[in-house]
Design a protein around this nucleic acid. Structure first.
Length: 470
RNA sequence: GACCCUAUCGUCUAGAGGCCUAGGACACGACCCUUUCACGGUUGUAACUGGGGUUCGAAUCCCCAUAGGGUCGCCA
């Protein structure tokens, strides 16, 4: 059997973390099984669906590189098909017209609540097809749900779930304007698209028995279901805007690599023993629905950060270089006038947790810094620092080959002349050429900055120290 | 409230009845490395929700309680 999975977001907002993980798991399973991954846009709610949201979702999927094999299909383009199925259900007696108005239904619900009953449609029109319908009211169409028996879901992650049909009321499958609703479109699409595995958030569990009933009324075997536990915010509450970055693209903006996000997401609710790091290929190879956890998990920003750092440390330079372009643009850093970006990445990759940070700590390679970091100045610049720097400056100025080795030797030579240890000479020199207290090792830093620039900065520091009079 | 689901360190998790003195990872602390910041290495603190069963033996199986989550729309 050819496995076919689908990701079916509704375009009412951006692609968020939970949606991204659902997409990832669906995608992984399809890839793992050599199957097909379908993208379907569930835009039947004309009020709330927007093209901007569709674009945002597509952009998020593209950034994560979760490519689909079929689609994107838009439900709004399949209304004829849904109408056909709805008609078929009415004809076969599996559905009926209901003339209750929204107000009546609202009242019904309130009365039921007042009587401490469960709010549900009371089946008023279920057996009243013969009566002449009230004039001037556009009916909705309801599915005639079985009233007895149970629906069993053999969920691939949770095992057997049993729901009694007595708990289910007759849901609306077509609105009074004739447009289909969610539970109908999902069923029709999953049938038409021959979806074999429905992998989705467990907030859909309660819809599942209804969909199975509709599917069976249509004469089809339901697909297999795998309901994923929710992702909670760091406080254990439902994920929402107040937890900070919820949109996938916001993680890009904040300097995360898609590799880190994907790796983080795959470990949220799924595991393969003690393994923490998964390449795309490993995920595909090792993934299984059986290993998915049943309990919801809380989002932990620290761990994501750690993973991001891991990928910044280990990803091929070319990959990071490509990802960095967007951030250079966003932070307006022109790297055309300075060392090769690849060299800077290699020098900095162990001290940046995000790409945003990477850009921020690499500015001094490409442009002059406005001021010396005051804290570093206070710690490193003393009365005799100017003279020491002058000695270092002269040694460096004499260099004809501006490379790590000779630079290191020159600094050593200066230390010997001064009778000082590197620990005394190095730190002030670093502040002088970078403006800050931290940077890669001095010889690499100096090499990348370049001789002319480095010497000028040392002079500037000497001037600054003399003028300040420590 | 009804129905459904879930329950191991602060967090993500390993654990399929004896391998558990409960392992790993993040975070946090200490130490080592070190020209800074980092990286890295070593190490420490820290958990089976509670109660009943079943069994020679239970984190693991069953029941109850408790807690958390989801759903109860002419939203998806």
């Amino acid at each position: 059997m050819n496995v076919r999975t689908r990701f079916a977001p509704s375009p009412t907002g951006y692609l968020h973390i939970g949606g991204a993980r659902t997409a990832l798991f669906s995608w992984l399973y399809a890839r793992k099984m050599g199957g097909t991954f379908i993208l379907r846009i569930e835009d039947t709610d004309r009020e709330r669906s927007t093209q901007a949201s569709v674009d945002a979702i597509l952009e998020g999927m593209a950034w994560l590189d979760l490519g689909h094999d079929e689609g994107p299909f838009y439900q709004t383009q399949r209304f004829d098909r849904y109408a056909e199925v709805i008609e078929q259900l009415v004809e076969s007696g599996h559905a009926y017209r209901c003339y209750c108005s929204k107000e009546e239904l609202e009242q019904m619900r309130e009365e039921q609540m007042a009587r401490k009953e469960n709010p549900r449609y009371n089946g008023l029109w279920r057996d009243r097809q013969d009566e002449t319908p009230p004039a001037g009211i556009a009916p909705v169409i309801r599915f005639r749900n079985p009233q007895t028996g149970v629906v069993e879901i053999n969920d691939l992650v949770r095992g057997k779930i049993t729901i009694s049909n007595a708990e289910l009321d007759d849901l609306i499958i077509a609105r009074s304007d004739g447009t289909p609703t969610y539970n109908l479109t999902v069923v029709v699409d999953d049938i038409d698209m021959q979806v074999t595995h429905v992998i989705r958030g467990d907030d859909h569990i309660s819809n599942t028995p209804r969909q199975i009933n509709i599917m069976q009324a249509l004469g089809f075997e339901p697909p297999k279901f795998a309901h994923l536990p929710m992702i909670l915010g760091s406080d254990g509450q439902r994920l929402s805007k107040r937890h900070g970055a919820v949109s996938v693209m916001q993680y890009r903006d904040e300097g995360f690599t898609p590799q880190a996000l994907l790796n983080y997401l795959v470990r949220l609710g799924w595991s393969n023993g003690d393994q923490e790091i998964f390449s795309r290929e490993e995920m595909i190879e090792l993934f299984s629905l059986e290993a998915i956890n049943r309990a919801p998990s809380a989002f932990n920003a620290d761990k994501l950060l750690w993973l991001n750092q891991h990928y910044i440390k280990t990803l091929p330079v070319e990959e990071l270089e490509a990802q960095l372009q967007w951030h250079l643009q966003a932070q307006q850093l022109d790297v055309s006038n300075g060392p090769a970006l690849a060299d800077v990445i290699d020098a900095q990759r162990e001290r940046a947790k995000t790409l945003v940070e990477m850009v921020a700590i690499s500015r001094y390679f490409y442009e002059e810094f406005a001021e010396f970091d005051p804290v570093a100045v206070q710690k490193q610049f003393k009365a005799d620092t100017a003279d020491n720097l002058q000695t270092v400056h002269d040694e460096l100025a004499a260099l004809s080959a501006w490379q790590g080795e000779p630079i290191h030797a020159a600094i050593q030579a200066a230390c010997e002349k001064l009778g000082l240890k590197l620990g005394k000479v190095g730190p002030p020199l670093r502040v002088a050429v970078t403006g800050s207290a931290s940077s890669p090792s001095l010889e690499i830093t100096l090499e990348l900055i370049g001789q002319a620039r480095a010497l000028a900065r040392i002079q500037r520091a000497i001037g600054f120290i003399r003028a300040t009079q420590f």
